[in-house]
Write a protein that binds this DNA or RNA. Structure first.
Length: 283
RNA sequence: GCGUCGGUGGUAGAGUGGUCAAUUACAACAGACUGUAAAUCUGUCGCCUUAGGGCUACGAAGGUUCGAAUCCUUCCCGACGCA
């Protein structure tokens, strides 16, 4: 089985830098696992790696989507599957690197998403209804899914209804066995250090011209509504606000990663690359 | 010094005699996650509890009342106005 290295962890723990180092050592190529770095022109606010930082190592799944249009996990999954195959065909090792847990799981756990593309018209129409109403409706058309859905989460309810309307009901979660062996490496930082790192990173974002980037997006025709969807960095950001929100986000990331027992964790501040290398080198 | 308006839980800010351990928002803590995932959503959030309750609380001290965060008195603090 071909191996794939997965580097994950909270924001600002130094995943990208580690990925580059490992790529150099084991002849790898990097695949980003970040739900926003897939968009063109979202650079500073998403902390996207620069050409210079890449240091000659290819990074895939960056800039593959137009920010005007929504990109989804399912599209991500399809793209990554083909990119992984290409890398392996070149006799190189794919290194998935990023902090979006859902995207990583879509690849490493082989989640099979129901083949129902988003129906914006239906979504818009359903969104005007209350969660209670949506839940009652779902109960009627798909009692099975209604049983274990979060009955107050409109986003989930709407997607479930969307699928149920198209397929009759929401299929049970399926996972496809992967042809790859994923080696999951988690980077973490002690809370105090993480906080400092985030503070530094956010300050740099503003210095690097986050506000200019937002203006440019606006000029290119991105609506306020869309900007909000890009996250707190893109909606009337101030350093204080972005730092606070980033810390909260980092907590949510950890909640997600915590439930995956396959992840091997390393303290990112310990510079213990020597411990990681044998792990990624063996087969 | 006189006058007016204020002082509420980690913060902001409702409440102006009983249904108030106190609306709400934010923060904090815990968690969920089937094509929006940095999104979206849930629970807890004074202290103790055998989860029925018990205790201490709305600047401080007294008082009125069956009953006070809410009314009265004095004091302390803040803002503004007049001196």
């Amino acid at each position: 089985m071909k191996k794939v290295i997965v580097i994950l962890g909270q924001t600002a723990t130094g995943k990208s830098a580690l990925a580059i180092k490992i790529a150099k050592k084991i002849n790898g190529e990097i695949i980003s696992a970040d739900s926003r770095q897939v968009y063109k022109d979202l650079n500073i606010g998403t902390g996207k790696i620069t050409k210079k930082e890449m240091n000659g190592v290819p990074n895939y799944l960056l800039d593959v989507a137009n920010p005007k249009h929504k990109f989804t996990v399912a599209e991500y999954q399809k793209l990554v599957i083909s990119v992984m195959a290409n890398i392996v065909a070149k006799n190189k090792i794919p290194i998935i690197c990023g902090g979006t847990g859902f995207y990583i799981d879509a690849i490493t756990k082989g989640i099979v998403f129901p083949e129902v593309p988003p129906n914006q018209k239906l979504r818009k129409q359903l969104y005007s209804k209350s969660a209670i109403a949506l839940f009652k409706y779902l109960e009627k058309i798909d009692p099975g899914r209604a049983l274990n859905i979060d009955s107050k989460n409109k986003v989930r309810l709407i997607r479930a209804i969307e699928i149920a309307k198209a397929l009759g009901k929401v299929p049970k979660i399926k996972q496809k066995k992967s042809q790859y062996k994923f080696i999951k490496i988690g980077l973490y930082l002690p809370p105090e250090k993480l906080k400092k790192k985030i503070e530094r990173r956010v300050k740099k974002m503003f210095q690097d011209g986050l506000l200019k980037e937002i203006k440019k997006l606006k000029r290119s025709g991105i609506s306020d509504k869309r900007l909000k969807e890009f996250g707190f960095e893109y909606w009337k950001p101030t350093p204080e606000k972005v730092i606070l929100e980033t810390l909260k986000y980092a907590k949510r990331q950890m909640i997600w990663f915590k439930r995956d027992p396959e992840i091997k964790w390393f303290d990112a501040s310990a510079k213990n690359l020597s411990k990681i290398i044998p792990l990624v080198k063996k087969d």
